[in-house]
Design a protein around this nucleic acid. Structure first.
Lengths: 224, 224
DNA sequence: AAACTGACCTGTGAC
DNA sequence: GGTCACAGGTCAGTT
């Protein structure tokens, strides 16, 4: 997929996340109730392709992002990849992924563990994953958002009142304010059974939703 | 796969096998020309799946049978498996198989050597392998039979005259009289190129021949 | 170099 | 409904 530069349209910042606080409300980028600040740095995101969420059980990491942000892997030799741990930005849940370089396709990929992430978060083509770093703790984080594209027939323009903002999970209640992720988002369970008139548990490999469009974004390693 | 009990339809017996004799004819379960008897004990059989005979180069051994009949392997740890020798029941030919436990799929498998057995015996999905023990000598034996299912179109009911009984190989000429293995069996070479209208050397991964049916049988370690 | 082999992985169905 | 067994995969190393 192409690597167009959408950089000009982005916001770069470090998010201050209180490890325990009441939800301070959307729109505030700094919590007033900080116990331990964490500097969270977005690395890059990617709009998921049909293959990323399909039966191939792998996520292709754009080469440039992989080599910039993730541990280097020995390409040519006996390299079994390495396991990387990602903490869910919202829930804190740990997601271990095996991170590999596949010489056959010259691609960096997340393999083992990825399909579980897709399934449990009900990800579909066009949804976005975001990789981040907790700079202070030296840990990786992961977040996602569902593609806000309204189902063409059933929900042409969900009214604002029905939009559902993601809520924090049981561990850390983290304001979810990266980028433009607060766009309209239909309730996931409804989409799960009805969107496009199919159960998304069924195979939809031919899905073309994201082809031909830019689908990953790099923020670089800086913090502002 | 369910583990239905087909036991009631089976015959259990110990076969007396003459180590050298003229073929004593089908239907007699005891040779009159015994030099050294061997007590042969069927352990279990398995109807081969497309994967068992395909490019995966492994035979999955049903867990229950594996743990009942084969040497115990260290499951949880770095276990490279062990080599088991199987003597062809009819020819005496030695077939070494590597026998492993794959923790990732929690499966017992025959790996190295298995594909050669498949190829040289021209095994196809739906065919059956039978594992036996030579009790006296403490050795494993293996046998197989081709699926006698007539090709639905070409050979709806092969006439008796055309049925070919397996003949003994060059080493030991052993009457082949286990169970009901004397069922109609088309000539293998013909089937190889024409059965079901396809060349069985080609990929037939979608083959559904054995799905949904019980495909392995346990006789237990007794001898009658 | 292409094919084969074997280690590892996952979805699915049964229980 | 969670767990388990296994059929069906991928991919890297080997030949």
């Amino acid at each position: 997929m192409e690597n167009n530069d959408r950089e000009e349209s982005l916001q770069h910042f470090t998010l201050q996340i209180p490890s325990s606080s009441t939800n301070s409300g959307a729109g505030s980028s700094r919590s007033q109730h900080v116990e331990r600040d964490r500097e969270i740095e977005p690395m890059f995101d990617k709009a998921l392709t049909p293959s990323d969420v399909g039966k191939l059980n792998r996520l292709v990491i754009p080469k440039q992002q992989a080599e910039r942000h993730f541990p280097l892997l020995g390409h040519g030799s006996a390299e079994r990849g390495t396991e990387l741990q990602f903490a869910d930005l919202r829930t804190g849940k740990q997601w271990p992924f095996r991170y590999c370089y596949w010489g056959s396709s010259q691609s960096y990929v997340m393999t083992k563990g990825w399909s579980r992430f897709v399934r449990e978060n009900n990800l579909a083509p066009g949804d976005t994953v975001l990789f981040l770093r907790d700079v202070r703790r030296g840990k990786f984080l992961i977040d996602y958002h569902h593609n806000q594209q309204p189902p063409p027939i059933l929900h042409p323009t969900p009214p604002l009142e029905l939009r559902q903002l993601p809520d924090g999970g049981p561990m850390h209640s983290v304001p979810y304010m990266f980028l433009d992720f607060s766009a309209p988002q239909p309730v996931r369970e409804r989409r799960r059974v009805r969107l496009f008139g199919v159960n998304i548990d069924s195979d939809r490999e031919g899905d073309d939703a994201t082809r031909g469009s830019n689908n990953q974004q790099d923020w670089g390693p800086r913090s502002i």
